[in-house]
Amino acid sequence: MHLDHHLESSAAVSADARRPDGTRRALRIGLGGPVGSGKTATVAALCRALREELSLAVVTNDIYTREDAEFLLREAVLPPERISAVETGACPHTAIRDDISANLEAVEDLEDEVGPLDLVLVESGGDNLTATFSRGLVDAQVFVIDVAGGDDIPRKGGPGVATADLLIVNKTDLAPYVGSDLARMAADAKAARGELPVILQSLRSEDGVREVADWVRERIAAWTA
């Protein structure tokens, strides 16, 4: 719940577009999706594609380890002070939807400590097809599925597939090996999502994250306009 209440002191309450000092806060984009679909790989690729042009930070939500944060650190996609890990108590969807306080604090601490930031990527722990982000935490959300998880996922739909601002169908390079029909996945996604965009990507190919990076650039342009 967001009340129209004047907050004199530090710490914004939730989705306010301005920070307590009056400056515009960073755009926050959430990435969710099933375990192993390529959320962390997509975050890493986005960081590499955008870090020269934008001031970036990442919040990871690992379920029981710090592996995702450690992967990003090991890959050196961003300096360590720009990567923060939130612990979720066995419920990744709770931390991004029902009780977003730990994630909001991670985002705000990053802005305080390494800001000003243009963009914060909030990566959910791997979850199921019903996981969505609260609008109090992120301004836009990306749902990442992959062809190896079964080409019937777009048809099955669910809140992530149907309502995310962007649906990524990842690992298209694997389609021939796992018998997934990309055309059918694209058509089913279109049917489930209407006008909402779908991007099929393979991070194995040169500049594989380009289309998603362009989508992020459009969101940034709209946010700062």
């Binding site: 967001h2 209440h5 907050l7 004199e8 939730s14 306080s101």
Partner: peptide, 27 residues
């Protein structure tokens, strides 16, 4: 950490000058 999270939730739920003062003093 839990105090900070509760402070955020409480300020949004029951806005009060006392909670605002607490947030200023213990950000």
């Amino acid at each position: 950490r839990l105090g900070r999270q509760l402070m955020r939730a409480a300020r949004a739920t029951w806005p009060s000058p006392e909670l605002d003062a607490l947030a200023s003093r213990f950000p």
